[in-house]
Measured scan of single mutants.
Amino acid sequence: IGSLMYASIFGNVSAIIQRLYSGTARYHTQMLRVREFIRFHQIPNPLRQRLEEYFQHAWSYTNGIDMNAVLKGFPECLQADICLHLNRSLLQHCKPFRGATKGCLRALAMKFKTTHAPPGDTLVHAGDLLTALYFISRGSIEILRGDVVVAILGKNDIFGEPLNLYARPGKSNGDVRALTYCDLHKIHRDDLLEVLDMYPEFSDHFWSSLEITFNLRDTNMIPGSPGSTELEGGFSRQRKRKLSFRRRTDKDTEQPGEVSALGPGRAGAGPSSRGRPGGPWGESPSSGPSSPESSEDEGPGRSSSPLRLVPFSSPRPPGEPPGGEPLMEDCEKSSDTCNPLSGAFSGVSNIFSFWGDSRGRQYQELPRCPAPTPSLLNIPLSSPGRRPRGDVESRLDALQRQLNRLETRLSADMATVLQLLQRQMTLVPPAYSAVTTPGPGPTSTSPLLPVSPLPTLTLDSLSQVSQFMACEELPPGAPELPQEGPTRRLSLPGQLGALTSQPLHRHGSDPG
């Protein structure tokens, strides 16, 4: 009997000691992992102490058991019943959930998450997105703005933001810190809205009876308010094209079509300037034949640059190039080494500058006005007194259609001029006259002087055409309008007829 009692007592005591040691061994194993994590990542002392304290409290609170892992091991129907039991206190005593059906309560219970916070733990920081609604079931918390405590909340209090009033989550206007050990039930806004969409009859009752104890939403960050730039940057990543407008005076608003859609830094370009900076079609017209890549860069430059609305530039004389043409100036200075066709295309550029300027006046029909002061630039669209967005969009579309028509007509005119030049060069190729044979009589004449090349004649003739079109064909006081194609086609051969009437002889060394 004594040996039996000794064996039973010894066996029970050893089993008890073994169970104690097993729990202690698990605790030390998990604690060792936490300390190894702290050492590996070199976490500083204040945060390291918070980690160790939280682990110790969580171990004593749950005995080292992962409740979520245990809950996920059950089937979904059983999980709903378990969640309904775990959140029964909240669902029974909170006013917004009263009167809900059994199915609605089960769906809500599945969406709730339980959070346990030790003292000093910050649940929400200032500036964080308010993605959830919090219900306090135990403990107390404090809300701070800077170093000032603005509120202390306790059991059955609710904090967050009214989700039904805002389409997008706002930002917190303060820090939420736990004063004691707290148990909180939180539900994400997407989950709550999903359940309320499934039960629309409960939705009206819920929003009407929901009383948020403390609204954390920062009202200064609401979209459309003066301080909402940061919020707009976070939620409006896919922005449309940006529009900046110059201020319109009362006198300017009476004149229709007073602005032109141009790229940034293009205030001095012609009315047909689009795409790359520098001139019509993204580059100076005089350098068009020598740089074919300008047409390839036109599309990307047009689509990537934001639109700006600026006044037209001052008018340019008909014979003056659009500006920024070092290529043609070098050719004029060193005409001995340049291609003979460069002079002809220089005359073509003069005609283009004249036609572009006159067509700009035809479509816009307003006098040039000086540029406004820099303080009046970049007025935002949302400022008071601005035109409605639809009106601005319609004006932009009208300007775009005008620019497209202008570009089409300029292309047709350019093709006409090039065809005339090619026809003239085919009839009378460039050549130098040879020395004529002296006559049989004693009164022999001296050799004839060489005839100037055709490109120079073409430049003079085209300059005469531009001056003739600019000065004589337009009646005084009438708006400057571009001439039609047949009129220009008839004027060019008439001007060139006198020049080509002389018999030109080919030089023996000319390969053409």
Rank of each mutant, 00 (worst) to 15 (best):
G127A: 02
L129S: 11
L130E: 01
T131S: 07
L133K: 01
Y134C: 10
Y134M: 04
Y134N: 04
F135W: 12
I136V: 09
S137I: 05
G139P: 02
S140N: 15
I141P: 02
R145L: 06
G146Q: 06
V148N: 11
V148A: 10
V149C: 08
A151D: 02
I152N: 06
N156M: 05
N156H: 10
I158H: 01
I158M: 06
F159W: 01
P162A: 08
N164E: 06
A167Y: 09
P169I: 09
S172R: 01
S172A: 10
N173K: 10
N173Y: 10
G174S: 12
D175W: 07
V176K: 01
R177F: 02
R177V: 11
A178V: 08
A178K: 01
T180Y: 01
T180V: 04
Y181S: 04
Y181D: 11
C182F: 01
D183G: 08
H185L: 07
L193E: 10
V195Q: 01
V195A: 04
M198R: 09
M198I: 06
F202G: 03
D204M: 13
H205M: 04
W207S: 04
S208I: 04
S208C: 12
S209N: 15
E211I: 04
E211H: 10
T213F: 01
T213A: 10
L216I: 03
N220F: 08
M221P: 10
P223Y: 08
G224T: 15
G224V: 10
T229R: 09
T229I: 07
E230K: 08
L231N: 11
L231A: 11
E232L: 08
F235A: 12
S236L: 10
S236E: 10
Q238A: 13
Q238H: 12
K242T: 09
L243R: 08
L243G: 11
S244L: 09
S244I: 11
R246P: 14
R246H: 10
R246M: 14
R246V: 11
R247W: 13
T249Q: 11
D252R: 08
T253A: 12
P256G: 07
S260G: 11
G263L: 10
G263S: 13
G268A: 10
S273D: 13
R274G: 11
R274E: 11
R274M: 05
P280Q: 04
P280T: 05
S284E: 12
S286K: 11
S287R: 04
G288M: 05
P289D: 01
S291G: 11
S294Y: 15
D297S: 11
E298K: 05
G299F: 04
S303N: 13
S303W: 10
S305T: 05
P311L: 04
F312E: 07
S313W: 03
R316Q: 09
E320S: 07
G323I: 12
G323L: 14
E325P: 04
M328N: 06
D330L: 14
K333E: 13
S334R: 09
S334Y: 07
S335C: 12
D336H: 10
N339T: 11
P340W: 07
P340S: 11
A344W: 04
F345E: 11
F345S: 06
S346D: 11
G347H: 06
G347Q: 15
V348A: 10
V348F: 04
S349M: 11
S349I: 03
F352S: 05
F354S: 11
G356T: 08
R359M: 12
R361C: 08
R361Y: 09
Y363D: 12
L366W: 12
A371N: 12
P372S: 09
T373G: 09
N378F: 03
N378C: 13
S382P: 12
S383E: 09
R386V: 13
P388N: 08
R389W: 15
R389G: 13
E393S: 05
S394G: 13
R395C: 06
L396E: 13
L396P: 05
L403Q: 04
N404Y: 08
S411Q: 15
A412C: 05
D413G: 03
D413Y: 01
D413K: 15
A415T: 12
T416A: 12
L420V: 10
L421R: 03
Q422E: 14
R423K: 06
Q424D: 06
Q424C: 09
M425K: 09
M425N: 11
T426R: 08
L427T: 13
V428F: 01
P429W: 09
P429K: 08
P429F: 13
A431N: 13
Y432C: 14
Y432I: 12
A434C: 12
V435M: 11
T437A: 12
T437G: 08
G439T: 05
P440I: 05
G441W: 10
P442E: 12
P442K: 04
P442N: 10
T443G: 10
S446G: 12
P447R: 09
P450L: 08
P450N: 09
P453F: 11
P455I: 04
L459D: 08
L459A: 11
L462I: 07
L462G: 11
S463P: 08
S463V: 12
E473Q: 08
P475Q: 13
A478S: 14
P479W: 08
P493G: 10
Q495I: 11
Q495V: 10
L496D: 08
A498V: 12
A498P: 09
A498K: 13
P503L: 11
H505A: 12
R506K: 11
H507V: 09
S509R: 08
G512R: 14
G512V: 15
G512F: 01
